[in-house]
Design a protein around this nucleic acid. Structure first.
Length: 591
RNA sequence: GGUCCCGUAGUUCAAUGGAUAGAACGAAAGUUUCCUAAACUUUAGAUACAAGUUCGAUUCUUGUCGGGACUACCA
């Protein structure tokens, strides 16, 4: 129970005692009191006027007087119009501090008990990861950690799109232009290596189309008839037919890509419990569709193609199997959804996928519901907005894609430069320095991508580097390092207090933030929104820095005050480290 | 055309229908004999437009203008 819940319950009782009326906890609106008024929390009484048949300020006065007289937690109140500003006894926060400062897991809770799968990253194997993928990856990783933190059992999975025309394009280009060279021989990271041939394919394709048009063919036909495109399609057919040479090449090139991805994932600190491959799942939807057809849940057109009718949901009819019996994209997703469910029997299955696929995901869920599959209701699309450049979307054809590996290297480079300029790292070994640069560079990058509400698209300007000051990862990390420094210098072991010194306004503000932290994490889990965690740790870090300015910890006036301030330091450190950990960000002891 | 999303300081982002719309960067000015100045303090600066619902609207409704996504027997 946190103070807001306690206060709500107390007000509920007060309403009953004063007016003999019942008000639900949901009807009570309590906010933090704005800084310019005295008080800690504010009850808005306008909404109670109908129920109580009184004016808002009257209600506020009466409730305030009652609370002051009957609730020992309330030490003062003030009424301004329909706002009842309540001051909470400092002892509540002092007790809270004493009871939690030593708990390094403070913030972890046991409020939810579902089994949840989170699918994220989900790359194609024809090109390396770019900046947009990073948003997906960090989101998935953080959301999984946030869901787990409140008590859920979480399974993190990656679904790799390893088959289809896109990889055939890379394969054809490699056959035509590579002379058998491998990434090792070329000294290029595997995913970039294969991506380069995907680009080569498109360059050559454009050239061939232009040539055909110059020879008098119309554009539409030229795009279909370009020899390199025909070759890629032929290769896809061979792949599907199980042609051995094609499969061998496919496996080889994919293994190069995976080697590259592994390096990136490792650097980013990203892990999965299970990896699905579309090459292994893409056929599995077919039998499910056929079963549903037999059960009259779907219908067939004259050409034998299978459809589902979603017009009653305001959507169209959707194709699920072609006339020749082959699968479409949606069929694969149906199969994969079933496979995931059969593997783990989850209550929820979260898909971290960009908002361009909102419609697709809506249709997938509807189809599963129509087919009465047990996994249907648990399907949740965690839709996030695209990362855009100031000029608009990133386009590989225009060469405006920001590569993920380059971005990471750049951020680590900036971390190195900043650290060297500040010159605070005497005594670091070269290994520790490298680790620090990684910690700070990745911290800046992850925080930058996670601090924005996932639903909203975000704009990244490559001209301006990601900041290390203000509302950023390094700022929070720095605060953690400062706290750690103080704690290292502290000589007392036992922080138990003999007497409890009074706390200042700043200290109370800080303790209020810390006290709310578990509830904030619960909200972040409910909304699957890491930006809430970014905000929470930033607020704590900021308020802590303000606290440090005029509260000497190690040179406090007396031993009890010092110990109490050390308790504050410890709890702040725990919360910052815990919150950053949920975001996938490391908290350095020194920087 | 249809469906959906988005317009908040110069810029990037906040704000369960609540008080005088918060931060950060950038701009201007200041703080260090003292626990890390990657910090702190101060100043200037915004809800695209117009109606409506409400005691109260950045938030809900409608319209206008502007931006984006989706709308394949592609994946």
């Amino acid at each position: 129970m946190n103070i807001v819940s306690i206060l709500k319950a107390s007000i509920q009782k007060a309403v009953e005692a004063l007016y003999d009326k019942k008000v639900s906890l949901e009807e009570l609106s309590i906010n933090e009191t704005k800084a310019e008024f005295s008080g800690d929390y504010t009850l808005v009484t306008f909404s109670l006027t109908k129920l109580l048949q009184k004016k808002p300020d009257e209600i506020a006065h009466e409730l305030g007087s009652y609370l002051l007289a009957n609730d020992p937690l309330v030490t003062d109140f003030e009424v301004i119009k329909g706002f009842l500003n309540v001051t909470i006894h400092s002892d509540y926060f002092i007790e809270f501090l004493a009871g939690n400062y030593s708990n390094s897991q403070y913030g972890k809770s046991d409020w939810a008990h579902e089994k949840i799968m989170v699918e994220y990253s989900s790359p194609n194997t024809n090109k390396p990861l770019h900046f947009g993928h990073l948003r997906n990856i960090f989101l998935g990783h953080a959301v999984a950690a946030i869901l787990k933190n409140v008590g859920n059992e979480v399974v993190k999975v990656n679904l790799i799109n390893d088959r289809g025309i896109h990889i055939c394009k890379s394969m054809i280009a490699w056959q035509l232009f590579a002379n058998g060279i491998t990434p090792e021989q070329a000294h290029v990271k595997g995913d970039h290596f294969v991506g380069d041939y995907y680009v080569k394919f498109n360059d050559e394709y454009k050239l061939q189309v232009a040539t055909l048009i110059a020879d008098g063919m119309n554009e539409e036909l030229a795009k279909k008839e370009a020899p390199i495109m025909l070759a890629a399609q032929d290769m896809l057919r061979k792949w599907e037919a199980g042609d051995e040479a094609t499969l061998t090449l496919w496996k080889t090139m994919n293994s190069w890509v995976y080697a590259g991805f592994d390096v990136s994932y490792k650097k980013l600190g990203i892990t999965f419990e299970h990896i699905y491959y579309e090459s292994q799942t893409y056929l599995s939807g077919k039998s499910i569709v056929e079963k549903a057809l037999a059960n009259q849940l779907l219908f067939q057109k004259e050409d034998q193609s299978v459809w589902i009718d979603l017009t009653d949901a305001g959507l169209d009819q959707k194709l699920l199997l072609r006339g020749d019996g082959t699968s479409v994209y949606m069929t694969q997703d149906i199969g994969t959804a079933m496979l995931k469910y059969n593997d783990y029997h989850t209550d929820k299955s979260v898909y971290v996928i960009g908002d361009e696929q909102n419609y697709h995901m809506q249709v997938l869920k509807l189809i599963m519901q129509k087919m009465k599959e047990p996994c249907a209701d648990g399907i949740q699309h965690l839709s996030y907005g695209m990362v855009e450049l100031p000029t608009g979307k990133m386009k590989s054809r225009e060469g405006t894609v920001v590569d993920a590996d380059d971005m990471v290297d750049e951020m680590v480079g900036i971390a190195k430069k900043n650290t060297e300029e500040l010159g605070k790292v005497d005594g670091f070994s070269s290994e520790e320095l490298l680790q620090l640069y990684n910690t700070l560079g990745l911290g800046a990058l992850k925080f930058y991508l996670l601090r924005v509400d996932p639903k909203k698209k975000m704009i990244f300007n490559p001209e301006e580097s990601i900041d290390f000051h203000g509302f950023t990862g390094p700022f929070v990390q720095y605060s953690h390092a400062r706290i750690s420094s103080i704690l290292r210098k502290a000589t007392v072991e036992d922080l138990t207090l003999d007497v409890k010194p009074a706390i200042s306004r700043t200290e109370k503000n800080l303790l209020k933030l810390l006290e709310q932290y578990p509830a904030i994490l619960f909200q972040a889990a409910k909304e699957m929104n890491p930006s809430i965690v970014c905000n929470a740790v930033y607020q704590v870090a900021k308020e802590f820095n303000a606290f440090l300015v005029d509260h000497s910890v190690l040179k406090a006036a007396d031993a009890n005050t010092m110990k109490q301030r050390l308790q504050i330091c410890l709890l702040c450190k725990h919360v910052i480290a815990h919150g950053l950990h949920l975001l996938g960000i490391a908290a350095p002891e020194r920087m």
